[in-house]
Write a protein that binds this DNA or RNA. Structure first.
Length: 408
DNA sequence: CCTCCACTGGAATGTGAGGCGT
DNA sequence: ACGCCTCACATTCCAGTGGAGG
């Protein structure tokens, strides 16, 4: 490529024919495929539908807690069954449906606020719900009024419930009917990837929730292959070499059967091929994409994180690279953190706060923490280890402007 | 089975921003 | 304009923890 004037370059890029992708949307993460494209989840769909059965006649549906690792189709199946229920309901029965991602609204107030606003149809209820500013109790009041005015049954999906700060929301939702707050029946589908979630629940919540449980097993390599095969029409005909799909499936199966990951890799492979102006997507593209997807996943995890959290991770990465050990006591990491703070001219947090942030990172799956007891003179301490390759972590953290002042 | 140590993590409290109702 | 609410983030204080080694 000869260095020409910028206008030509831009034109080149824009006018480049897309000879790889036909319909890229099919590979987007949030994309809900047609039912005939949902692979290997027939059992799960049937079981979930049985729980919601009551709803279509206007009775109370059962509450369900769904377990399964990421990318096993939990959200997909729930959304699908929920919409089907709404569509097939008796004409006299009006069903309201909401999907709430608790990782976004992770406090009780935010969650009710979102639920109320999403279900509210102003022309029927005549009220508007402000996004913030009200007390929690008022949001509940709004919410009860809204569902009562509009629906016979409300089905609520709470995705990633384990990220909710406490159980109060579940408690109040499941108690609403007995407490005569509402006439509308409420069905809750709670989705969690922590198996012990229900065990950790408050006894009172458990008894009023009276939930059924549903487990989603990871996809096996064959199912992953089918899933990908079902989406190959995102590409132009005959651009995928034969080993592309099986290889993507194999990479994802190695992890834990994560369909999202499989699709991610496939999409990236396509993008890479496109960028290179290749005619076909090959095995090499897939291998490159796999590495890229790894970085991407991590970048997504920490992108929105506050600078303090990033600095803490940087400290841990730095230690991992320079020392022979893999895991480090909190004190050590804190000292390294203080060092970095000084260099980039950032305020230092107290050690107590530092510990909390580090623990948050563990919850997010970025670091791993083990308790260690040195006995007589050592006392109790925690050992922190980066899960991701420290090189990758460092690379990505360096993308943050605040880290510019940092050099080793 | 008891002791001992240094770190852990719960609780109380403060600050500042965002936003509603009157 | 004012009072009142919640939430996010941070600090301060300190009782509790738990396994190696006696």
């Amino acid at each position: 490529m000869s260095p020409g004037n910028p206008t030509d370059i831009a034109e080149d890029v824009f006018s480049q024919d897309d000879n790889i992708f036909a319909n890229r949307q099919l590979l987007n993460i949030g994309h809900v495929p047609n039912p005939d494209r949902i692979v290997g989840r027939d059992d799960e769909i049937r079981k979930l539908a049985e729980q919601l059965r009551g709803a279509i006649d206007g009775h109370a549906p059962d509450n369900v807690i769904i377990y399964g690792k990421t990318g096993t189709g939990k959200s997909l199946v729930s959304k699908y069954v929920m919409t089907r229920a709404q569509e097939t309901a008796e004409s006299a029965v009006s069903i309201g449906t909401v999907y709430l991602d608790c990782s976004e609204d992770n406090t009780e107030t935010q969650a009710v606020s979102s639920l109320a606003r999403r279900l509210n149809q102003q022309d029927i209820t005549g009220t508007a719900v402000p996004p913030t500013g009200l007390s929690t109790a008022k949001y509940y009041k709004h919410f009860w009024e809204i569902i009562d005015a509009q629906f016979d049954v409300a089905i609520i999906i709470l995705d990633e419930v384990d990220l909710l700060a406490n159980d109060d929301l579940l408690m109040k939702l499941s108690r609403a009917e007995e407490a005569d707050k509402v006439d509308c029946h409420i069905g809750i589908i709670a989705i969690s990837n922590k198996i012990q979630y229900a065990e950790d629940l408050n006894e009172r919540v458990k008894s009023s929730l009276r939930h059924k449980e549903l487990f989603f097993q990871p996809y096996d390599a064959t199912q992953l292959r089918d899933i990908l095969q079902n989406r190959t029409d995102a590409f132009q005909t005959d651009v995928l070499t034969d080993d592309v799909v099986p290889l993507c499936a194999a990479f994802a199966a190695q992890e834990h059967g994560d369909a999202r990951k499989a699709i991610d890799i496939l999409r990236h492979a396509g993008k890479i091929a496109y960028k290179q102006g290749a005619k076909m997507v090959t095995e090499a593209h897939v291998r490159e994409a796999q590495q890229y997807a790894e970085k991407d996943r991590f970048r997504e995890l920490i992108d929105g994180a506050p600078t303090q959290a990033k600095t803490i991770l940087m400290a841990l990465a730095e230690l991992s690279l320079n020392a022979e050990a893999e895991a480090f006591p909190t004190r050590k990491v804190f000292e390294q953190y203080q060092l970095i703070c000084k260099q980039i001219g950032m305020d230092e947090l107290t050690e107590r706060r530092f510990r909390d942030i580090l623990k948050e990172q563990a919850f997010l799956g970025i670091v791993e923490i083990h308790k260690k007891n040195q006995g007589l003179a050592g006392g109790v301490n925690l050992e922190n280890r980066l899960i991701e390759d420290p090189e990758i972590v460092k690379d990505i953290l360096r993308e943050d402007n605040r880290m510019n002042g940092w050099h080793d």
